[in-house]
Simulated assay, not measured.
Amino acid sequence: MNAAHDCHIHMSGVTRNIMFPYQLGAIGHSLNNPPVRQLHTFFPDQIELCLRLSGDTRNGLPVQTVAGKTYENIPYPHVLVKPPGAEYSFANFGRREVFYLIYPSGLAGIFRKTGIFDPPLCWEFSMNPELELMLKRISDYFDTSLSPGNADRIDILCFQLICELLLMKKSAGLPPDKEHELMLRIDSWIRLHAFENIEFETLARKFGLSRSSFFRYWKRYSKSTPAKYRMDLRLNEACRRLAGSRERIADIAQGVHLGEPAYMGMLFRQRYGMTPLEYRKKHSTLGNG
């Protein structure tokens, strides 16, 4: 994420226009936090979520302890959650770029329902284009956070960011057998809903995965891409209906979510070397009566 300068914005006194429950107390971005050899502290009145985007590792990776659990050798980028009242210590931090969100401790109850305080409190994540865009959209509002509605937008975007990171946390390190079991469930769902408008990002969220994790798992599960797999299901069903019924070709195209008959015709010529009508004549299982 690119930013012009370091910043720390106090949000607790900024007027909101909507009653979004996850309202920030502060937010900030530091491009070059100074190195620290050792620190021990705790924050009784706040919840802090740190995204450590990059860092100097020439002297090794940092050692961090939060809520009694020590985390070592966690590469950048990674997330660290500091629950309210939890002791926190770290050692061997080189210079680093940090994006952080701070919430009042009074929100601990509703945050707990999201699973944000469930272990681990520190985890690695992949900086994909979706996360980069989220961080950019948030930072774009920094200079105008007092403008009407912008504090609300920052609150909402930050919560979306947290949800995406929690999905990555949930899907990280999934055991192979559990991963395969999950992909079988997703496969079954795609087969059941193949003739509907499937957004794969929405599908990933439905099964508790980030978009990047979904496509990574699917690549290990199938030689076909999700889009091609879905298209194969639709074309196979179109073939079945063409051969086994007298439905109008336009109705079949709409029924299997292939759009207009002309588009279905183009797909059939590419896949089977013939039009849908020619396919019906060649493969029909119906008699002439």
Rank of each mutant, 00 (worst) to 15 (best):
H10W: 11
S12P: 01
T15H: 06
R16S: 06
I18N: 06
P21A: 08
P21K: 07
Y22N: 05
Q23Y: 00
Q23W: 00
Q38R: 14
L39H: 13
H40R: 13
T41C: 02
F42G: 03
D45G: 15
L49M: 08
L53K: 01
S54F: 02
G55N: 08
T57V: 11
R58P: 00
N59T: 12
N59G: 09
V63A: 10
V63M: 10
T65N: 06
V66M: 08
A67H: 10
G68A: 09
T70P: 11
T70R: 15
N73T: 07
L80C: 07
V81L: 08
P84K: 14
P84T: 12
F90C: 04
N92H: 06
F93Q: 04
E97C: 05
V98G: 06
Y100Q: 04
Y100K: 09
I102N: 01
P104D: 11
P104Q: 12
G106P: 01
R112H: 12
P119T: 13
P119E: 11
F125M: 03
S126G: 04
E130L: 15
R137F: 01
S139Q: 14
D140G: 03
D140P: 00
Y141K: 15
F142A: 12
S147E: 15
S147Y: 13
A151F: 07
D152K: 03
D155T: 11
I156Q: 08
C158K: 00
Q160W: 12
C163M: 10
L166I: 12
L166F: 10
L167V: 06
L167T: 05
M168V: 05
K169R: 12
K169L: 04
K169S: 03
K169M: 05
K170R: 14
A172Q: 03
G173C: 06
D177P: 05
D177M: 14
L184R: 13
I186N: 00
S188I: 09
S188M: 13
I190R: 03
R191L: 05
L192Y: 08
L192S: 13
H193V: 06
A194R: 07
F195Q: 04
F195L: 05
F195P: 07
N197S: 12
A204D: 01
F207Q: 03
R211S: 10
S212I: 02
S213I: 00
F214Y: 04
F215H: 12
R216M: 09
W218L: 02
W218N: 00
K219I: 10
R220Q: 10
S224R: 15
P226E: 03
K228D: 04
Y229R: 06
D232S: 12
L235F: 15
C239G: 09
R248P: 03
A250D: 10
A250E: 12
D251F: 05
A253T: 03
Q254F: 10
V256N: 00
H257D: 10
L258F: 05
G259E: 07
P261D: 12
M264T: 06
G265A: 15
M266K: 14
Q270H: 11
R271D: 03
R271N: 05
R271M: 09
Y272H: 08
P276Q: 12
L277Q: 14
Y279G: 06
K282W: 07
H283L: 01
H283I: 02
T285H: 12
L286Q: 07
G287Q: 11
